[in-house]
Amino acid sequence: MAREGGQERRTSKKSERSDEEQLAPSEDVAERKERLDEDVDAILDEIDEVLEENAEDFVRSFVQKGGQ
C-alpha cells in the first residue's frame, strides 16, 4: 500500500530538514534561543485565537458520565 512507504518518508525528511535549519551550527546560541522563543510565541498566538472564551466556565461545564 502506498501509504506504508512514500508519504511517511517524505514527511520525516521534511521535518528533519527543518530541524537542521533550526540547529544550524553557525548560529549563535543566544540568537537561536531568541528565535525559538519567537517561534513559541507564534504558536501560542495561534492557539490563543481558537481557545474557548471563559476557560473557567467552559472547563467547569464539561461533565461526563463514566464509561468503560
Binding site: V40, I43, L44, I47, L51, E52, V59
Partner: peptide, 25 residues
C-alpha cells in the same frame, strides 16, 4: 510542551483553568 509554554508566558499555576482548557481542547 504547550502547557509549559503557557506557564512561562503567562505565569500560570497548575490549577489555572486555562491550562485545564488546553488539556480539554
Amino acid at each position: 510542551s504547550l502547557l509549559e509554554s503557557y506557564r512561562d508566558r503567562d505565569g500560570l499555576a497548575w490549577d489555572h483553568p486555562k491550562l485545564q482548557l488546553v488539556d480539554l481542547q
